[in-house]
Structure formats: C-alpha cells, structure tokens
C-alpha cells in the first residue's frame, strides 16, 4: 500500500485503545456479514466474499474431496460446503478466474489482529478489486503487537 496507509497503520498500532476500537468495528462488520474467523489476512476478495476459513479444515485453496452430492459439508451435513458456496457465488459474480490464485500458508501470528490494518501496513495483499491477479512478493514485516 502507500506511505499514507502505512502511517495510518503505524499510528493505530501504537495506540491500544484506538486499535481495539478498529478491531471491534472490523469484527462487528465482518463477523455479522461474512462470518469472519479473524485470521487477520483476509482473502474475501478472491473468494467471492465468502469466508473460506469457515471450512472445518480451513481450506484456503479449494474444496477437500468430501463435498457431498447435494453440496453439503462432509463434517457437518446440515451446513453447506463453503467452497460450494464460493464456487456458486463466484460464477454468479463472474469472478471464477480469481479462484485459481494460490494462497500461501496462513501466518498464524496475524490471527486475531485487524486485517484492515495489516493490509494498510503492507503485511498482506491489498483488497484490489479492479486489477487482475498479481503475484506480489510481500516485504517481510513484523506482525502487529497484540493488545
């Protein structure tokens, strides 16, 4: 991201109360709308705005082999397979090409931190809806302090 957003993130992360407020706001929004699991490195924009971390196996790169014929999860038969939802929604939104992106292993240090601030600080890929998928070599950055 830009110098400006990095400054915002740096300022927020220095102030625990502000950071907690941002985190609370983000959680309230994302938990209510997307069922956010607080991984701190959001991939919603690639997954047609369905959170793949809701999958019991936390599959980030596509469905496991257990999707039932009716599109239900193998672990919880009364729930839909998250990747089934992602696929249907991506098709509907015309974003199926974005499903081909390879997602690197989750950085567990970022769990329960603000994905927005992590994005501003340049720790994760920006939420970029306009451009094609790009492979960006991310700078190695320290995780945020946990308040």
């Amino acid at each position: 991201m830009s110098k400006f957003t990095e400054a915002i993130a740096e300022f927020t992360e220095k102030h625990p109360t502000l950071y907690r407020c941002v985190l609370l706001g983000e959680n309230m929004f994302k938990k209510a709308i997307f069922g956010c699991q607080d991984c701190g490195q959001c991939v919603l924009s690639y997954n047609a705005f369905v959170c793949c971390m809701r999958c019991p196996k936390q599959m980030r790169n596509g469905p496991c082999g257990g999707t039932r014929a009716n599109g239900r999860c193998e672990v919880y038969p009364n729930r839909p397979c998250i990747w089934w939802l992602i696929y249907k929604r991506a098709k509907w939104m015309g974003r199926a090409a974005k499903l081909k992106k390879y997602h690197v292993p989750v950085d567990r240090r970022l769990e329960h931190t603000s994905a927005w601030m992590n994005m501003f600080a340049g720790r994760i890929l920006p939420l970029d809806l306009s451009k094609e998928l790009r492979e960006i070599e991310l700078p190695k950055k320290e995780p945020p302090p946990k308040w």
């Binding site: 596509g62 469905p63 257990g66 999707t67 599109g71 990747w83 696929y87 199926a96």
Partner: peptide
Amino acid sequence: FAEPLEMRIIR
C-alpha cells in the same frame, strides 16, 4: 466424483 466439476479441475 465430488461436485462441482469445474472447481475440481481448478484445484
């Protein structure tokens, strides 16, 4: 054999 087929190919 799991659905959807296109997603299987992507994976």
